[in-house]
Simulated scan of single mutants.
Amino acid sequence: MEKSMVTYVLSDSIGETAEEVAEAAISQFNSGNFEMRRFPYITEKEQVIEILEEAKEENSIILFTIVVEELRRFLIEKSHEYNIKAVDIMEPILNAIESVVAIKPKREPGLIRKLDENYFQKVAAVEFAVKYDDGKDARGIKKADIVLIGVSRTSKTPLSMYLAHKNMKVANIPLLPEVKAPKELYEINPKKIIGLTANPIKLNEIRQERLKSLGLNNTASYASMERILREIEYAEELMKDLGCQIIDVSNKAVEETAGVILELLRENNND
């Protein structure tokens, strides 16, 4: 007659890794007499004793992913005392990796979870940048961590996407003399607004190349020096009126400008 067994899954984090390993192992046994009980966020010795007291009354095994050394050793020691088989899932892998890279593991619970959260925050930030790119929706101004403003071809969109990969929610607003600036710009902290400007000669070159790439005549007013000077004058007056910080992006790579913006934000947060 087959014996039933209870698998106790213990973790100092959420316990998904240990549970998946347990399920994979159990699936190799053609039996329905297996029960699994998961105990996440085990951080105290008292929790370990309570679980062992329960497990000793049953035909049981313990699988665990506890990386905090003191608690891990305590569980192993007490499992022996209670005569319960305990399997450390993480330790053999950690030891193998350590022997190859010669670096000690951090032994911090939940790091994989933190990495996942960071990934999803980055995805959310990128989606935000796309949604509120080029003034598509002024409502993004109040939701953003950073609002970039400037005339056309001052790298607003590339900067928004670069900063999004740093988990920053960025909205960007194009400035045109004929279009009134969104009122929301006056309703947020000016320290969240970054004005982007550029040398008119540089802008002229960039805009002419842009028109060429679109198969358009580069003599269009969009690339005329008169038009560019008018736009820059309007934009810089607006930026001064807002009281925001201004960055000249003429000779800066996107990464360099982003670094300046992030440093300004750090300084603002420290004030």
Rank of each mutant, 00 (worst) to 15 (best):
E226A: 07
I61K: 09
T257F: 10
M5T: 11
E256D: 09
M225A: 01
L175C: 14
E46D: 13
G243I: 01
E23L: 14
L75I: 04
V48Q: 06
F120E: 11
E20T: 03
K180Y: 09
H165P: 01
K166N: 03
I173L: 08
M1A: 12
V101P: 03
I141R: 00
I103H: 14
A253F: 13
K180I: 07
E44N: 08
E226M: 04
L216D: 07
R227Q: 15
T154M: 05
E77S: 00
K156P: 06
V147I: 07
Y132N: 02
A86Y: 08
I61Y: 13
I201H: 05
L115Y: 15
A86K: 08
L262A: 06
V67F: 10
Q28S: 09
K180F: 09
F34I: 06
P92T: 01
D145V: 03
S31F: 14
I51V: 14
L262Y: 14
I62L: 09
N59L: 08
I93K: 07
P158I: 00
L196A: 03
D241M: 08
L238G: 10
F64I: 00
S160H: 02
E108S: 04
I112T: 09
V9C: 14
N270G: 15
I42F: 07
L242E: 05
L75A: 02
R207D: 09
G243F: 13
P158N: 01
P158E: 01
S221V: 15
E226W: 09
I149Y: 10
K202Q: 08
E98I: 00
N251H: 10
I149P: 02
K191A: 13
Y132C: 07
V48S: 10
V123L: 07
L216T: 04
E69V: 03
A181R: 01
E226Y: 08
L214H: 13
A171N: 07
K104F: 12
G215F: 14
K212R: 15
V130R: 06
V260I: 15
L159V: 00
R227K: 08
R113V: 11
V170F: 06
K166C: 06
I14R: 07
F74S: 04
K104G: 10
K191G: 10
P190E: 03
L75M: 07
G15A: 01
T7Y: 14
V260K: 11
G110E: 12
D88E: 08
M168G: 00
D133W: 12
I232G: 03
E91P: 00
G150F: 11
V260S: 02
E50R: 09
D241C: 08
I146D: 10
G259H: 12
L94H: 08
I84T: 02
F64M: 04
I93P: 03
Y8M: 03
N172G: 05
E127Y: 14
H165I: 00
S213F: 13
E50P: 04
M239S: 03
P200Q: 02
L211F: 14
V48C: 08
E127S: 12
M239N: 06
I14Y: 12
V6T: 13
S250Y: 06
K180N: 13
M225I: 10
